[in-house]
Design a protein around this nucleic acid. Sequence first.
DNA 1: CCACGATCCTGCTAGC
DNA 2: TGCTAGCAGGATCGTG
Length: 276
Amino acid sequence: MPELPEVETTARGLRARIVGRQIDDVSGLDWPAMAPNATADLLRMALVGKVVATVERRGKYVIVGLTDGVSLLFHRKMTGNLVVRSGEAPVSRHTHLTIAFDDGSRLDFVDPRKFGRIYLFLDGAARDAFLADRLGPEPLEIQRTELAGLLTQRRGRLKSLLLDQRFLAGIGNLSADEILWESRLHPERSADSLTPREVGRLHAAIQSILALAIERRGTSLNDYVDASGEPGENQNHLQAYGRAGLPCTRPGCGKPIVRLLIAQRGTWLCLRCQKT
DNA sequence: CCACGATCCTGCTAGC
DNA sequence: TGCTAGCAGGATCGTG
């Protein structure tokens, strides 16, 4: 499932491959619900002839910035992928949008589950308002004191809070479990109960878990591949997520990781290292 | 403010 | 082996 590290890896890959390309054609939108604020015709009219100026990430959104202030946002939810292919490559199953470029390459939005979403914005202000409405600070940019301040204003459980995109943008179920394991905090701890020392551990874990996952080009457990169609390697470094029954790797521990249902999400943790 | 349940989808898996 | 039921999960919305 694409979370911040996967989206960041994809954005970097896209930046290297499509910035400067002019859009020749937009086609293949076969599921109208995927484009809540546009239609196939609207996308074609707005995008054909535009040149890709920037590719950015905000939270779990990929933002393709085009000439004349137009931008295209992608949210991949669980199973979506953005892959650049050569024009001759066959269009794979579950491709729901294809953007053809002037150099013969194309960008495919592939999503078996059709949860992914595509948004078109004709000006930067509308796009920024859309994002500001949904997303809190970037977890890799937030300072420890700022995080501490936000935490004292909340009484919810840490797991719910980390999954709340308005609290911090980009953390998903996998990152949340890894961050909580790394910081030795129980997912059901209430946010305003953390000591300054614990806030420090949480802040450090947010930074290190996400930065390392980006270095490893994301986690490929199921569907995720990068902009070139290549898997990441962070799946080989997980300490909690998906490891039910396997021993906790913290030196001197070794207690089996358990899976609980917390905030309606599968949650993996070590009950010895992460006390309530 | 916070929790919970339903919704959207399809591929995979567990169980018969 | 073949079938089916049920689960997974990000974001959003409605309800308590």
